[in-house]
């Protein structure tokens, strides 16, 4: 339990790591747009090339990217198979009577699956190279113009900050409560899913109670430290938009432009 690192951030000091989190969020949005514009499988090579460049620059090993695909692997397989079934085509490769495997279907399946892979991999590049704290800061800054419409950008960011702070503490605590209940003969391992679910109550209730107490005490401590909402608040760490950030955005835009050109030409 103790090994779980939050999000999947891999500490580093590469060019990508040092980019402003806002830049990286922007890059990801442009990258997603680029990937969605692809209409033919071969042009997936453009976002693919972009991803490879980013990967090399960040110094992150491919293993992490593959790990991030693990949770969606069943979805990917399912999508691949469904498209084989439901895409119509002329070029029959195999005829089983009730179903024909066509070249078009195969190509379409590959295309859609690869596109999802590229999307997930691109999005995880953001979380792999940006610490959750930086990400929170970046989001707060990016969303702050929405405050005009009463969007709670600061509150949202503060909630994320506190959640990040307390997840390890609560994990520790659930570990302790689990041990205590096991010492009283509680059994969390046997029985069917309902029985197991019910056996979690002696862990969940103390955990809830303790979370509420923590929230209460934290609120008092924050108040004592002059917290009074986001108004008039400054930050010690200022986000700085530097020249390198400009380059990164320009390069990403160049890739997007290339994508659009291919669309127009074909």
């Amino acid at each position: 339990m103790r090994d779980i690192t939050l999000g999947q951030f891999v500490a580093g000091n590469s060019v990508i790591h040092r980019l402003d989190p806002r830049t990286k969020i922007g890059m990801m949005i442009l990258y997603i747009a680029m990937t969605f514009l692809v209409k033919k499988i071969w042009f997936l090579s453009i976002p693919f090339a972009y991803l490879i460049i980013e990967l090399i620059l960040s110094g992150i090993s491919l293993r992490y990217i593959l790990n991030s695909l693990k949770p969606v692997r069943f979805l990917l397989i399912l999508m691949f198979i469904l498209n084989l079934f439901f895409t119509k085509g002329e070029d029959v490769w195999l005829d089983l009577g009730f179903w024909k495997l066509t070249g078009e279907a195969f190509l379409q399946s590959c295309f859609l699956t690869l596109r999802i892979i590229l999307l997930v991999a691109g999005a995880s590049m953001l979380t792999l190279t940006t610490s959750p704290i930086a990400l929170t800061d970046g989001l707060e800054k990016l969303l702050s113009p929405l405050k005009v419409f009463h969007f709670p950008a600061h509150e949202l960011a503060m909630m994320m900050t506190i959640a990040l702070r307390f997840v390890p503490t609560l994990m520790d605590e659930s570990d302790k409560i689990r041990n205590a209940q096991m010492s009283r003969g509680a059994d969390f391992e046997s029985g069917n899913i309902f029985k197991r679910g019910k056996s979690m109550i002696p862990i969940l209730i103390p955990l809830f109670v303790s979370s509420f107490r923590k929230a209460d005490e934290l609120a008092i401590a924050m108040e004592s430290r002059c917290y009074h909402g986001g108004e008039g608040r400054t930050r010690m760490h200022q986000l700085k938009f530097r020249l390198i950030d400009l380059y990164a955005i320009l390069i990403t835009l160049a890739f997007l432009a290339a994508m659009i050109v291919t669309l127009i030409l074909l």
Partner: peptide
């Protein structure tokens, strides 16, 4: 063997 852990009151649930 009965074990009373640190701050055992945090295990109360019923």
């Amino acid at each position: 063997v009965g074990v009373v852990f640190q701050y055992p009151e945090y295990q109360l649930f019923a």
